[in-house]
Design a protein around this nucleic acid. Structure first.
Lengths: 198, 198, 198, 198
DNA sequence: GAGTAACCGAGACGGTACGTCCTGTCTTGGA
DNA sequence: TCCAAGACAGGACGTACCGTCTCGGTTACTC
């Protein structure tokens, strides 16, 4: 406790802000996490908040980012296909839940307000990318993957459809649907050679 | 068209609004298409606008929707794979251009303001869905597609990645990337039998 | 009933409008008597309403005017002073009650919207003026009044203070206050006997 | 005044608002002094205006109040009756001029929107009351007044008739009429000598 | 008794002001 | 020296009401 004051004040301020923002996001989604509300709850002034982040979306992205990473641990089923399918299932479940709504609001906010986009990428996509890269490495090691496809492409093809559905709501995000999408993505849409695919 | 003055007033008002909105979207994107600006340019009062649409995003979606449909005619290359790949290429090009930015803003606005979502689905997704359904039907007729995969799933897997990239900007939307994504989606990510993929 | 249709339609429409307006004024004061509300409740279209009256305040003045006349019958106490004082008391009581608020709103509306002023004068002041003129005539017949003072002046001096208080609310409109005001005013207005006045 | 920039910002904002409002009132009366117009001319945002005043009428009352006080200095003719009659004459002249119209609009607005009433009382009536109280005190000191009549009653009886005429327009506000009214009222209010009144 | 003209209900519309909200900057005073 | 507290400009929001207008159907006169 004695060395708590040695933390630069800015660190304590950032923590307070992120903590308060998390609470507000949980309580009322992104609309509830207005800068005024964050300032009031955290006891950190608006000026200070804007000294650390360029816009509201950036704060929210940083506050919410880890939550998602924690909520979606990497699976290890023994096969690359199993791992990837399970990961799609987990991400779909996350998107389909309450947090998914907040995630969508955040993504939307970072479109509206481009200053937040780098934060969104850093605190959401980077983490996700690392997970997929690891699974993809395992798959490569096992020779399960098409050598011509990169991890980035895989991420897009596997999770893009989920985000599409999350944002537009044109189709549900159930577990069954997640499996359908991951199967299609993993196997391919066209009827080349099948049999091993579900 | 001689009877234009006999159009019910509501029709004329809607036309004015949609036309003005299109212009504003072209000039400054969604932020420029505020309800006040639409009202001022169209000569239609705000109250009337809110009588016809629930929110700004709905107006913009309707105004911008057809533009996209017109900009992306259905291809007919002779093969289902070719048609689908070409369609992905065209949609990617659309997203990558100026219109893509507006499209992203619109999608984001419909997340923020759910009242607009049905309009977005009607004026963007419905059109897209019809196109894909037709291509998919051709493909089924030719026996090129995996019978177990529906057109809806195909749409998600083919275009979800593009939307993912459009919104987050984590990867470019070039033609080459579009081909990579469509190949991966159409063939599948896993290494069954490869080589015939473009 | 058979000859009801012989009434010009306009007469029925006016009656419906005035009746509906009275109800609305009773329920929520002048703000509740919007033209839309009057139209809806009376079944008479707004266009027709505006054919008969120049503005909302005019309708309300006509609708509310008789109410006040009915509520304040002329007193007859045997002396001019007694009659006038009693009349001030009655008007004060009217102003102090619920109707007083509506009266004030109406007067205010006719200031804001001068088209209504003639209606206000016709349906409120004319009636009042007639009453005062009659009392004043009685007083003259009895030789109680200062011959140099006209009935108009008397009306202003007796009721002006009440209206002043009603509108600004700077002092109450109780019966005792009414007597104080009328005493002060009557001592000046009545010529003959001075001394018995408080 | 060198420290003008050090004035708390709120003071500068209030000054700007009141100044702009005065101008607008002069140019087009109360209807011209919409909150939007005040905001635009003063450079003070609407939100700030609503932080300092509860409604438009309150702003206008404060802006216009002093003007009236300045325009009507207290007379000193040597006799209480003379002072009071002169004061009635001056107030009548004020009401009869352009400012009278604005005054009437303001009073009406404070009836319509009760949130403004305290401001009206503070910035119009309080000043008036102080003036009358002083004149009344002089009169009492000279023994000219009826001891049973308070200054408040005097104010109502003297100025109520003017306000009545101002608002309803049922009679003119000329100097001659003002004298007629003040004579009638003062004969009642002043105790001592009767008969020499005009 | 059909034709015709006036009239009216219903309500959409332009216009205007409203009062609220939130963002991101700027100022002040205290620690 | 740094920060909380919060005032501020700017600008969009969605609502409310007014008074005008357009439409289509009904009514009440005319022939």
């Amino acid at each position: 406790m004695a060395e708590e004051p040695t933390h630069p004040r800015s660190v304590r301020a950032k923590d307070s802000v992120l903590c308060a923002t998390r609470e507000l996001l949980d309580e009322g989604g992104l609309p509830a996490a207005s800068v005024d509300a964050i300032s009031a709850r955290s006891g950190v002034s608006k000026a200070t908040i804007y000294k650390h982040w360029p816009c509201r979306a950036a704060v929210a992205a940083e506050a919410f980012g880890r939550r998602m990473a924690d909520a979606i641990p990497l699976p290890d089923t023994g096969s690359a296909r199993g791992d990837l399918a399970e990961q799609v299932r987990r991400v779909s479940a996350f998107y389909g839940g309450d947090s998914g709504k907040v995630f969508a609001q955040l993504l939307a906010a970072c479109v509206t307000d481009p200053a937040g986009a780098p934060y969104f990428r850093q605190f959401f996509l980077a983490t996700r990318w690392e997970g997929i890269a690891e699974l993809w490495q395992r798959a490569q090691d096992r020779g399960e993957v098409d050598a011509g496809v990169g991890a980035g492409t895989a991420m897009d093809v596997l999770f893009g459809p989920l985000i599409f559905r999350l944002l537009t709501g044109h189709a549900p995000l159930t577990e069954a649907e997640a499996d359908t999408l991951s199967s299609a993505a993993l196997d391919g849409l066209l009827s080349s050679v099948r049999g091993e695919s579900s």
